[in-house]
Design a protein around this nucleic acid. Structure first.
Lengths: 152, 152
DNA sequence: ATCAATTGCATCGCTCGCGATATAAAATAT
DNA sequence: ATATTTTATATCGCGAGCGATGCAATTGAT
Protein backbone atom coordinates (compact mmCIF):
# COMPACT_ATOMS: atom_id res chain seq x y z
CA UNK A 1 0.00 0.00 0.00
CA UNK A 2 2.67 2.50 1.05
CA UNK A 3 5.15 2.30 -1.78
CA UNK A 4 7.97 3.79 0.33
CA UNK A 5 7.72 0.64 2.48
CA UNK A 6 8.41 -1.76 -0.38
CA UNK A 7 11.58 -3.71 0.29
CA UNK A 8 12.68 -3.43 -3.32
CA UNK A 9 12.59 0.36 -3.14
CA UNK A 10 14.92 0.57 -0.19
CA UNK A 11 18.61 1.20 -0.43
CA UNK A 12 19.05 0.29 3.22
CA UNK A 13 18.01 -3.31 2.72
CA UNK A 14 20.41 -3.68 -0.19
CA UNK A 15 23.22 -2.33 1.96
CA UNK A 16 22.28 -4.64 4.81
CA UNK A 17 22.08 -7.68 2.52
CA UNK A 18 25.21 -6.87 0.52
CA UNK A 19 27.28 -6.31 3.64
CA UNK A 20 26.24 -9.67 5.05
CA UNK A 21 26.80 -11.50 1.78
CA UNK A 22 30.29 -10.04 1.46
CA UNK A 23 31.10 -11.01 5.03
CA UNK A 24 29.88 -14.51 4.29
CA UNK A 25 32.12 -14.65 1.23
CA UNK A 26 35.10 -13.77 3.41
CA UNK A 27 34.28 -16.36 6.04
CA UNK A 28 35.77 -19.49 4.40
CA UNK A 29 38.93 -17.57 3.45
CA UNK A 30 39.41 -16.23 6.96
CA UNK A 31 38.44 -19.53 8.52
CA UNK A 32 41.65 -20.99 7.08
CA UNK A 33 43.53 -18.34 9.06
CA UNK A 34 41.52 -19.05 12.21
CA UNK A 35 39.96 -15.58 12.41
CA UNK A 36 36.59 -13.88 11.93
CA UNK A 37 35.81 -10.89 9.75
CA UNK A 38 35.80 -8.30 12.58
CA UNK A 39 39.06 -9.81 13.85
CA UNK A 40 40.47 -9.42 10.33
CA UNK A 41 39.53 -5.74 10.44
CA UNK A 42 41.28 -5.28 13.80
CA UNK A 43 44.37 -6.99 12.43
CA UNK A 44 44.39 -4.72 9.37
CA UNK A 45 44.30 -1.72 11.69
CA UNK A 46 47.24 -3.10 13.69
CA UNK A 47 49.23 -4.19 10.62
CA UNK A 48 49.05 -0.60 9.46
CA UNK A 49 50.05 0.74 12.86
CA UNK A 50 50.98 -1.58 15.70
CA UNK A 51 50.50 -0.66 19.36
CA UNK A 52 47.30 1.35 19.50
CA UNK A 53 44.92 1.99 22.40
CA UNK A 54 41.48 0.40 22.29
CA UNK A 55 39.83 3.71 21.55
CA UNK A 56 41.84 4.37 18.40
CA UNK A 57 41.03 0.94 17.03
CA UNK A 58 37.35 1.43 17.77
CA UNK A 59 37.30 4.85 16.10
CA UNK A 60 39.03 3.53 13.01
CA UNK A 61 36.44 0.79 12.63
CA UNK A 62 33.50 3.00 13.64
CA UNK A 63 32.70 0.62 16.46
CA UNK A 64 32.00 1.26 20.13
CA UNK A 65 34.66 0.26 22.64
CA UNK A 66 32.21 -2.11 24.28
CA UNK A 67 32.25 -4.07 21.03
CA UNK A 68 36.00 -3.90 20.58
CA UNK A 69 37.02 -4.79 24.13
CA UNK A 70 35.51 -8.31 24.10
CA UNK A 71 36.75 -8.77 20.53
CA UNK A 72 40.29 -8.00 21.67
CA UNK A 73 39.92 -10.25 24.69
CA UNK A 74 39.06 -13.14 22.39
CA UNK A 75 41.98 -12.25 20.13
CA UNK A 76 44.29 -12.15 23.14
CA UNK A 77 43.07 -15.61 24.15
CA UNK A 78 43.88 -16.79 20.60
CA UNK A 79 47.38 -15.41 20.98
CA UNK A 80 47.01 -12.81 18.22
CA UNK A 81 47.51 -9.68 20.33
CA UNK A 82 48.69 -8.57 23.75
CA UNK A 83 47.29 -5.74 25.87
CA UNK A 84 49.30 -3.57 28.23
CA UNK A 85 48.41 -0.53 30.31
CA UNK A 86 49.66 2.67 28.76
CA UNK A 87 52.64 4.30 30.48
CA UNK A 88 51.62 7.89 29.76
CA UNK A 89 47.90 7.39 30.39
CA UNK A 90 47.28 4.47 32.71
CA UNK A 91 43.64 4.22 31.61
CA UNK A 92 44.62 3.13 28.13
CA UNK A 93 45.14 -0.44 27.06
CA UNK A 94 47.76 -0.52 24.35
CA UNK A 95 47.09 -3.35 21.94
CA UNK A 96 50.07 -4.91 20.16
CA UNK A 97 50.50 -7.76 17.71
CA UNK A 98 52.15 -10.96 18.90
CA UNK A 99 54.58 -12.81 16.65
CA UNK A 100 51.67 -14.97 15.55
CA UNK A 101 49.60 -11.87 14.78
CA UNK A 102 52.42 -10.37 12.73
CA UNK A 103 53.02 -13.57 10.81
CA UNK A 104 49.35 -13.78 9.82
CA UNK A 105 49.79 -10.74 7.60
CA UNK A 106 51.56 -12.68 4.90
CA UNK A 107 48.89 -15.38 4.63
CA UNK A 108 46.20 -12.71 4.81
CA UNK A 109 47.72 -10.88 1.87
CA UNK A 110 46.12 -13.48 -0.40
CA UNK A 111 42.62 -12.89 1.01
CA UNK A 112 41.59 -9.85 -1.10
CA UNK A 113 42.49 -11.71 -4.30
CA UNK A 114 40.58 -14.76 -3.10
CA UNK A 115 37.52 -12.63 -2.60
CA UNK A 116 37.97 -11.15 -6.05
CA UNK A 117 37.58 -14.61 -7.54
CA UNK A 118 34.29 -15.08 -5.76
CA UNK A 119 33.10 -11.80 -7.19
CA UNK A 120 34.15 -12.73 -10.71
CA UNK A 121 30.58 -12.83 -11.99
CA UNK A 122 29.93 -9.36 -10.66
CA UNK A 123 30.04 -6.93 -13.59
CA UNK A 124 31.74 -4.05 -11.77
CA UNK A 125 34.40 -2.07 -13.54
CA UNK A 126 37.13 -0.15 -11.78
CA UNK A 127 35.24 3.11 -12.29
CA UNK A 128 32.10 1.64 -10.74
CA UNK A 129 34.19 0.40 -7.86
CA UNK A 130 35.72 3.81 -7.20
CA UNK A 131 32.40 5.60 -7.53
CA UNK A 132 30.75 3.21 -5.15
CA UNK A 133 33.54 3.62 -2.60
CA UNK A 134 33.04 7.40 -2.76
CA UNK A 135 29.30 7.09 -2.35
CA UNK A 136 29.65 4.76 0.62
CA UNK A 137 32.12 7.19 2.17
CA UNK A 138 29.66 10.03 1.74
CA UNK A 139 26.92 8.01 3.42
CA UNK A 140 29.20 7.16 6.31
CA UNK A 141 30.32 10.77 6.63
CA UNK A 142 26.76 12.10 6.61
CA UNK A 143 25.64 9.68 9.29
CA UNK A 144 28.74 10.23 11.42
CA UNK A 145 27.97 13.96 11.46
CA UNK A 146 24.33 13.32 12.17
CA UNK A 147 25.28 11.03 15.04
CA UNK A 148 27.67 13.47 16.73
CA UNK A 149 25.13 16.26 16.20
CA UNK A 150 22.46 14.33 18.10
CA UNK A 151 24.85 13.66 20.95
CA UNK A 152 25.01 17.35 21.87
CA UNK B 1 53.36 -3.34 3.69
CA UNK B 2 50.79 -5.21 1.63
CA UNK B 3 48.79 -2.44 0.05
CA UNK B 4 45.82 -4.74 -0.64
CA UNK B 5 45.43 -5.04 3.14
CA UNK B 6 45.00 -1.32 3.72
CA UNK B 7 41.61 -0.62 5.23
CA UNK B 8 41.12 2.45 3.08
CA UNK B 9 41.49 0.39 -0.08
CA UNK B 10 38.75 -2.04 0.80
CA UNK B 11 35.21 -1.82 -0.42
CA UNK B 12 34.13 -4.48 2.06
CA UNK B 13 34.90 -2.32 5.08
CA UNK B 14 32.98 0.60 3.61
CA UNK B 15 29.99 -1.68 3.07
CA UNK B 16 30.26 -3.05 6.59
CA UNK B 17 30.55 0.40 8.12
CA UNK B 18 27.85 2.02 5.98
CA UNK B 19 25.37 -0.77 6.69
CA UNK B 20 25.90 -0.39 10.42
CA UNK B 21 25.66 3.39 10.33
CA UNK B 22 22.42 3.24 8.37
CA UNK B 23 20.98 0.73 10.80
CA UNK B 24 21.97 3.02 13.66
CA UNK B 25 20.23 5.90 11.93
CA UNK B 26 17.03 3.85 11.77
CA UNK B 27 17.21 2.81 15.39
CA UNK B 28 15.70 5.91 17.04
CA UNK B 29 12.91 6.06 14.46
CA UNK B 30 12.03 2.40 14.92
CA UNK B 31 12.44 2.61 18.66
CA UNK B 32 9.37 4.87 18.71
CA UNK B 33 7.45 2.00 17.10
CA UNK B 34 8.89 -0.52 19.55
CA UNK B 35 10.69 -2.56 16.91
CA UNK B 36 14.24 -3.28 15.75
CA UNK B 37 15.62 -2.98 12.23
CA UNK B 38 15.44 -6.71 11.38
CA UNK B 39 11.90 -6.76 12.75
CA UNK B 40 11.09 -3.80 10.51
CA UNK B 41 12.33 -5.82 7.54
CA UNK B 42 10.15 -8.80 8.49
CA UNK B 43 7.15 -6.50 8.82
CA UNK B 44 7.81 -4.98 5.38
CA UNK B 45 7.82 -8.48 3.93
CA UNK B 46 4.52 -9.27 5.61
CA UNK B 47 2.92 -5.92 4.78
CA UNK B 48 3.60 -6.74 1.14
CA UNK B 49 2.23 -10.24 1.47
CA UNK B 50 0.67 -11.45 4.69
CA UNK B 51 0.67 -15.09 5.77
CA UNK B 52 4.00 -16.50 4.59
CA UNK B 53 5.95 -19.52 5.80
CA UNK B 54 9.21 -18.93 7.66
CA UNK B 55 11.26 -20.09 4.72
CA UNK B 56 9.82 -17.52 2.30
CA UNK B 57 10.49 -14.70 4.73
CA UNK B 58 14.05 -15.90 5.25
CA UNK B 59 14.67 -16.19 1.51
CA UNK B 60 13.30 -12.72 0.86
CA UNK B 61 15.65 -11.24 3.46
CA UNK B 62 18.59 -13.47 2.50
CA UNK B 63 18.73 -14.78 6.05
CA UNK B 64 18.92 -18.32 7.39
CA UNK B 65 15.83 -19.74 9.04
CA UNK B 66 17.77 -20.19 12.27
CA UNK B 67 18.05 -16.41 12.37
CA UNK B 68 14.45 -15.77 11.42
CA UNK B 69 12.81 -18.31 13.74
CA UNK B 70 13.98 -16.66 16.99
CA UNK B 71 13.26 -13.24 15.45
CA UNK B 72 9.67 -14.31 14.79
CA UNK B 73 9.37 -15.81 18.26
CA UNK B 74 10.31 -12.44 19.75
CA UNK B 75 7.84 -10.70 17.44
CA UNK B 76 5.13 -13.14 18.46
CA UNK B 77 5.87 -12.39 22.11
CA UNK B 78 5.50 -8.69 21.28
CA UNK B 79 2.11 -9.40 19.73
CA UNK B 80 3.13 -8.34 16.22
CA UNK B 81 2.62 -11.69 14.46
CA UNK B 82 1.06 -15.09 14.99
CA UNK B 83 2.39 -18.46 13.79
CA UNK B 84 0.25 -21.42 12.73
CA UNK B 85 1.10 -24.81 11.25
CA UNK B 86 0.42 -24.94 7.52
CA UNK B 87 -2.61 -27.00 6.46
CA UNK B 88 -1.14 -28.24 3.18
CA UNK B 89 2.37 -28.87 4.50
CA UNK B 90 2.35 -29.44 8.22
CA UNK B 91 6.06 -28.70 8.51
CA UNK B 92 5.51 -25.06 7.60
CA UNK B 93 4.85 -22.32 10.11
CA UNK B 94 2.65 -19.71 8.47
CA UNK B 95 3.40 -16.26 9.85
CA UNK B 96 0.59 -13.71 9.87
CA UNK B 97 0.28 -10.14 11.08
CA UNK B 98 -1.83 -9.42 14.13
CA UNK B 99 -4.05 -6.35 14.24
CA UNK B 100 -1.22 -4.57 16.07
CA UNK B 101 1.20 -5.64 13.35
CA UNK B 102 -1.11 -4.37 10.62
CA UNK B 103 -1.69 -1.06 12.35
CA UNK B 104 2.04 -0.42 12.62
CA UNK B 105 2.23 0.01 8.86
CA UNK B 106 0.72 3.46 8.95
CA UNK B 107 3.14 4.81 11.57
CA UNK B 108 6.01 3.08 9.78
CA UNK B 109 5.14 4.85 6.54
CA UNK B 110 6.82 7.96 7.95
CA UNK B 111 10.09 6.15 8.67
CA UNK B 112 11.71 6.37 5.20
CA UNK B 113 11.16 10.12 5.11
CA UNK B 114 12.58 10.42 8.61
CA UNK B 115 15.70 8.68 7.50
CA UNK B 116 15.93 10.94 4.47
CA UNK B 117 16.21 13.92 6.81
CA UNK B 118 19.14 12.32 8.60
CA UNK B 119 20.84 11.82 5.26
CA UNK B 120 20.27 15.40 4.19
CA UNK B 121 23.97 16.25 4.22
CA UNK B 122 24.72 13.30 1.97
CA UNK B 123 25.31 14.64 -1.54
CA UNK B 124 23.61 11.79 -3.41
CA UNK B 125 21.45 12.57 -6.39
CA UNK B 126 18.67 10.34 -7.63
CA UNK B 127 20.92 8.99 -10.39
CA UNK B 128 23.61 8.08 -7.88
CA UNK B 129 20.99 6.41 -5.76
CA UNK B 130 19.68 4.28 -8.62
CA UNK B 131 23.17 3.37 -9.81
CA UNK B 132 24.19 2.36 -6.33
CA UNK B 133 21.09 0.21 -5.90
CA UNK B 134 21.96 -1.58 -9.15
CA UNK B 135 25.55 -2.11 -8.09
CA UNK B 136 24.53 -3.47 -4.72
CA UNK B 137 22.08 -5.80 -6.46
CA UNK B 138 24.83 -7.09 -8.74
CA UNK B 139 27.08 -7.77 -5.74
CA UNK B 140 24.29 -9.62 -3.96
CA UNK B 141 23.48 -11.61 -7.11
CA UNK B 142 27.10 -12.57 -7.71
CA UNK B 143 27.57 -13.76 -4.14
CA UNK B 144 24.25 -15.60 -4.05
CA UNK B 145 25.32 -17.57 -7.13
CA UNK B 146 28.74 -18.22 -5.65
CA UNK B 147 27.15 -19.41 -2.43
CA UNK B 148 24.77 -21.87 -4.08
CA UNK B 149 27.61 -23.05 -6.35
CA UNK B 150 29.77 -23.95 -3.35
CA UNK B 151 26.92 -25.83 -1.74
CA UNK B 152 26.99 -28.43 -4.48
C1' DA C 1 4.21 -50.05 -0.11
C1' DT C 2 8.64 -49.41 2.01
C1' DC C 3 12.83 -47.28 2.65
C1' DA C 4 15.96 -43.43 1.74
C1' DA C 5 16.79 -38.70 0.85
C1' DT C 6 15.14 -34.13 1.22
C1' DT C 7 12.82 -30.26 3.24
C1' DG C 8 11.00 -26.97 6.98
C1' DC C 9 11.67 -25.60 11.24
C1' DA C 10 13.67 -25.53 15.95
C1' DT C 11 17.53 -25.63 19.24
C1' DC C 12 22.29 -24.93 20.79
C1' DG C 13 26.59 -22.51 21.11
C1' DC C 14 29.33 -19.00 19.76
C1' DT C 15 30.67 -14.18 17.97
C1' DC C 16 29.13 -9.55 17.12
C1' DG C 17 27.08 -5.02 18.11
C1' DC C 18 25.30 -1.76 21.13
C1' DG C 19 22.70 0.76 25.05
C1' DA C 20 23.26 1.25 29.90
C1' DT C 21 26.08 1.28 33.72
C1' DA C 22 30.43 1.06 36.55
C1' DT C 23 35.22 2.31 37.83
C1' DA C 24 39.58 4.24 37.85
C1' DA C 25 42.60 7.74 35.87
C1' DA C 26 43.13 12.22 33.96
C1' DA C 27 41.75 16.89 33.00
C1' DT C 28 39.38 20.97 34.50
C1' DA C 29 37.30 24.15 37.64
C1' DT C 30 37.19 26.77 41.71
C1' DA D 1 44.84 21.60 46.67
C1' DT D 2 40.31 19.82 46.36
C1' DA D 3 36.07 19.01 44.05
C1' DT D 4 33.88 18.29 39.62
C1' DT D 5 33.76 16.69 35.08
C1' DT D 6 35.47 14.11 31.45
C1' DT D 7 37.76 10.18 29.43
C1' DA D 8 39.31 5.14 28.67
C1' DT D 9 38.04 0.86 29.41
C1' DA D 10 35.28 -2.90 31.28
C1' DT D 11 30.94 -5.39 32.38
C1' DC D 12 26.12 -6.71 31.75
C1' DG D 13 22.03 -7.81 29.15
C1' DC D 14 19.82 -8.43 25.00
C1' DG D 15 18.99 -8.97 19.94
C1' DA D 16 20.83 -10.52 15.96
C1' DG D 17 23.42 -13.85 12.65
C1' DC D 18 25.07 -18.23 11.56
C1' DG D 19 27.27 -23.16 11.63
C1' DA D 20 26.03 -27.53 13.44
C1' DT D 21 22.70 -30.63 14.85
C1' DG D 22 18.08 -32.74 15.63
C1' DC D 23 13.37 -34.04 14.40
C1' DA D 24 9.21 -34.59 12.00
C1' DA D 25 6.79 -34.19 7.56
C1' DT D 26 7.29 -34.77 2.73
C1' DT D 27 9.14 -36.43 -1.43
C1' DG D 28 11.55 -39.71 -4.29
C1' DA D 29 13.33 -44.25 -5.34
C1' DT D 30 12.77 -49.04 -5.90
Amino acid sequence: MYKQLKLDHQLCFRLYAAARMVMQAYTPLLHNLGITYPQYLVLMVLWENDGQPVNDIAHRLLLETNTVTPLLQRMEKEGLVTRHRGTVDKRQQIVSLTQKGKELEESASAVPLGLGKRMASCPMKLDDYILMAQQLDSIVEALKEDKTAKQK
